[in-house]
Amino acid sequence: MAQSSKKAPPREPLLEWISAGIGLVLTLGIMAVIGREALRGETHEPPAIEVVKTAVHRAGTGFVVEVKAINHSGGTAAVVEVEGVLKDGETEVETAGLTFDYVPGHAERRGGLFFTEDPARHTLELRPLGYQRP
């Protein structure tokens, strides 16, 4: 009976094995990465965003401070507002702001703040103001 049900085995072309193999590797790989994220269960953590200065340039009539928002937690933040304040001692000299559409968990996003005053001659304070849950 086992013999009668066994038809002449069709020989799959080598290319079929190769592409199926690639598919298997890619599928398992991508599922492993997402699965690891699922197991860590960090996506519900509140985002922890740090804003740091990466560079200062002269730009047009003023200055641009390039900044980087780093999310140290697994939770994704949307509409992240960032504020940069130039201070002379306790007095605020100038304020600039920007909004990042998304800062995904454990990811970085880059942007810049425009100032008319030279940031090098003041102290620059950078901080995230708030976010939305996507």
Partner: peptide, 23 residues
Amino acid sequence: FERTASLFEDVLDALAAIAVAII
């Protein structure tokens, strides 16, 4: 995208489709 004779071949085809899709 290919005629299949067995469920195993269907699985192979599905994997190939995913390979194409991811790439």
